[in-house]
Nucleic acid binder design. Structure first.
Length: 616
DNA sequence: ATAGGGTTAG
């Protein structure tokens, strides 16, 4: 019921939608083109109209008329021309006007900086800003708000901090536009506390600054913090718009909070908020990451306009759920749609979709089409990574290894990790050992790598290697991002850590895990002790294994949710081999569907079988 | 005349 079709105009920020053949006010145009002695007022009026209507050709004719009649436009009019050309997507023309200006003021500099930053030319925008300072022109609040949006590279962040000092010196730190731009810059640099400080110091807040800080948390994966802040600001009377909800949906996607996501969706539909493409894209992603692809597809199908991101979000959804056939079907549809071109993310989604869906040959064909230019996307490192995955999954481990050696890139940790994973599943100890060594060299501090290599050694019965791996791990400073699993029940998110004793129903949960383990052992479950790398006896290892956050969340789901619904658990890391097996027993013994989202994909486990076919 | 927050992938 809540998915009704909403038709709204497309996002007005799309630059490509300008028209060139429009009717300008005839008298003015005639005056300009028939030798009338044009004055400032006339030019200003006609240029304003051209800017508003994005009338590129007419604007050019007016500009040409100025040159022909040797009219010398003021700084003001030249700046209008820069803005006109920028809005009409003609950066070259804008820059020519800028170059030929006999004098410039803060507005013309800012307009030009804005032109570059809007088109994504960050370093040019920053260069221009520096030139502006050197020329002795003092920036104003417009300049700062603009230039900070171009501070998104590592060099940009350094410059951004210096710009912050200048902002303080020139007394613009209380300005809300400058503040939102500044806090956004800090958030994008991962400096969320500094972003928060800027936010808290603002004398007044508005939708944009509030949205910027909420999205800042969400983009860094601080989902709970984002949600908490959203609720607090809402309580303090913050107004939300569609961008705010996009940020909130990002946080909810991360948490896989389906019920809350539906609530936001309902709210958006009931309110006057327009269903802009960006918001719909967020909804597609939210439903897919919450495990509900049907809703994602329903939104996708009813969209009035789709961007490449809409297609990508849907493709990624199918891919993560292991629905390879659907990925290919949708990709075919996409290629028939001429308005949208596949990009690098599209191909990534399709390749990984083929891999997760067990369609190795189809995936390899697509990679070949890309290499031969039949698909017009430049193959990047990540695409090569997908091929390693595809070959590895189908058991062609040697081929995958050869492929890595011939790649035009230096292999990354992700590539070796993918090869090692394949070796674990297909028990290729020789290549796996090599991949593992490379991996331990690149990422000596990543505990996950040790676990997979240990799994591999254990599967080959090489126990002495398992123990020397453990010794090696003790020598290095190995940090493990703490594993965390959560489950949403009645709009409340229950989060568990390993051996977590903080849940109000901890006794019950702990008992249940033990009970399950005992009963599963009677029907064939064998705890996989190679998943534990601590130097303890077997009994202890089993205890540690039973404390894994996934098992706590799964058991809690079994106790606390009705038997008719699937148990939906999400884990922040890749799921452990033993817990994956444990979940299969739950599905078989209790007849419950388990939907498990890990860092890489969804595992839909029914009747003891998983949609990943034990490859992840 | 010039300005800030947003969606997919990793």
């Amino acid at each position: 019921m809540f998915l009704t079709r909403h038709v709204f105009p497309s996002n007005s920020r799309t630059l490509s939608t300008f028209t060139t053949h429009i009717h300008l006010q005839q008298p003015l145009l005639q005056m300009a083109l028939h030798g009338f002695n044009m004055k400032f007022e006339n030019y200003n009026a006609i240029l304003n109209e051209c800017v508003n209507k994005r009338a590129f050709r007419e604007g050019q004719r007016v500009h040409a008329h100025m040159i022909k009649t040797r009219y010398l436009p003021s700084v003001f009019l030249r700046t209008r021309l820069i803005v006109l050309y920028t809005k009409c997507d003609s950066l070259g023309d804008a820059h020519n006007v800028f170059d030929e200006m006999p004098e410039r003021n803060v507005v013309s500099w800012t307009a030009m900086i804005s032109a570059y930053s809007q088109r994504g030319y960050a370093s040019q925008a920053l260069n221009l800003f520096l030139q502006m300072l050197r020329s002795g022109t003092e920036p104003n609040e417009f300049t700062f708000a603009t230039v900070l949006t171009s501070c998104t590279s590592s060099l940009g962040f350094i410059l951004g901090r210096q710009i912050h000092s200048l902002i303080i010196k020139l007394n613009y730190e209380d300005h809300v536009f400058v503040g939102s731009s500044l806090l956004d810059m800090y958030a994008k640099d991962g400096k969320i506390h500094e972003a928060r400080t800027v936010f808290e110091c603002l004398p007044e807040r508005d939708v944009v600054s509030c949205t910027a800080i909420i999205s800042g948390y969400a983009q860094l994966g601080l989902d709970e913090e984002a949600l908490e802040l959203f609720r607090r600001l809402q309580g303090e009377g913050m107004k939300s718009n569609y961008v705010t909800y996009t940020g909130v949906l990002t946080a909810l996607s991360g948490l896989a909070a389906l019920d809350l996501g539906k609530q936001v969706h309902n709210h958006v539909l009931r309110s006057e908020i327009p269903s802009f493409v960006v918001l719909q894209n967020s909804l597609i992603d939210m439903y897919s990451k919450c495990g509900n692809l049907t809703y994602s597809r329903r939104i996708f199908d009813t969209m009035y306009e789709r961007t490449v991101i809409s297609w990508n979000a849907m493709l990624v959804g199918y891919s993560k759920h292991g629905e390879g056939r659907e990925v290919l079907k949708l990709f075919t549809l996409m290629r028939e749609e001429t308005k949208v071109k596949p990009d690098s993310v599209t191909i990534l989604a399709v390749l990984s979709g083929c891999s997760h869906g067990g369609l190795e040959d189809k995936g390899l064909n697509i990679f070949n089409d890309m290499s031969s230019g039949k698909i017009e996307v430049e193959p990047k490192m990540e695409h090569y990574g997908c091929v390693v995955d595809l070959l590895g999954r189908s058991g062609r481990v040697e081929e995958a290894f050869e492929f890595i050696k011939k790649m035009p890139f230096e292999p990354t940790a992700a590539i070796w990790g993918s090869l090692l994973g394949a070796c674990r599943v297909h028990s290729n100890v020789d290549i796996g050992e090599f991949a593992g060594q490379q991996l331990l060299e690149i990422e000596p501090g990543n505990a996950g790598n040790y676990v997979i290599l240990s799994n591999l050694y254990a599967s080959a019965g090489r126990w002495e290697d398992v123990s020397s791996l453990r010794d090696l791990m003790l020598k290095k400073t190995v940090t493990k991002e703490p594993g965390r699993s959560s489950i949403e029940l009645d709009q409340v998110l229950h989060t568990f850590h390993a051996s977590d004793r903080s849940h109000p129903r901890r006794e019950e949960i702990c008992m249940k895990v033990k009970e399950l383990s005992t009963s599963f052992k009677e029907v064939g479950y064998v705890p996989d002790l190679s998943c534990v790398l601590h130097d303890v006896d077997e009994e202890q290892k089993e205890k540690i294994l039973l404390g894994h956050s996934e098992k706590l969340a799964l058991s809690f789901g079994l106790i606390a949710s009705p038997a008719s619904v699937p148990i939906r658990v999400i884990k922040n890391l890749r799921i452990c081999v033993d817990c994956h097996n444990f979940a299969k027993y739950i599905s078989k013994v209790y007849g419950r569907e388990v939907s498990l989202r890990d860092k890489n994909r969804f595992h839909r486990i029914v009747g003891g079988k998983c949609s990943c076919e034990d490859y992840w």
